[in-house]
Amino acid sequence: MDEDLIAKKDVLEQTGISYGQLYRWKRKGLIPEAWFIRKATVTGQETFFPREKILTRIEQIRSLKEEQSLDELVQILAPESAPETVKCDDPTLLAPVGAEGRKLMWKDRGYTFGELVALACGAHALRAGTRPAEAKLLVDLVRAAEEVVRAPTGITALLGEKSIDGEGLAVRLTVGVLGHEPVRLDRESRVKHRVDMEKIAEQVKLALREVA
């Protein structure tokens, strides 16, 4: 993928964090293994990170570190640690779901973390202007894939649209796709909406914390 990368030394320089912090956060799982990308350069092997993700994560760790211990932070941020015990009765209180999410809800109460992430995906699509029926596709897709919520790094959920124009017939199909990046559609289809699962899972985690 042509994801924008940043070299490790530039991360350190820009953020002012130390090697010690970086390695400590990696050990704790606050920076996922998958973000460490080793590449050959003119000067030998170097480590790169997805620019936006690493800079956002370091910002989050720093702003939360004031009030939380590192171990608590792991619970909040580490993608592998999906909260097991969440039962949320009013998902619309969470910013990533919000009022838009109401249309997508399928029960009154007792939403688990995975189900909240599914709702948030749908709400994300609704906000971008997709129709409720299409957003529901995303919700169903993510609901059925629990393992994705637990390890969302590098996974994308998307809505694709394909137009078939025949004689006297024009059909537009929308499909939901869930998979590891790089996710590609055929050339006659277009991506209607794309959700970074890692980001959305994280937003739900942070929102849960705010509500609590």
């Binding site: 130390s18 090697y19 010690g20 390695y23 030998g44 092997q45």
Partner: peptide, 18 residues
């Protein structure tokens, strides 16, 4: 790679530190 690195009798390709 470390913030404070002290090495003796070590063979390494790259050393990075403060």
């Amino acid at each position: 790679e470390g913030d404070r690195v002290h090495l003796e009798a070590t063979t390494a390709d790259v050393v990075r530190g403060k």
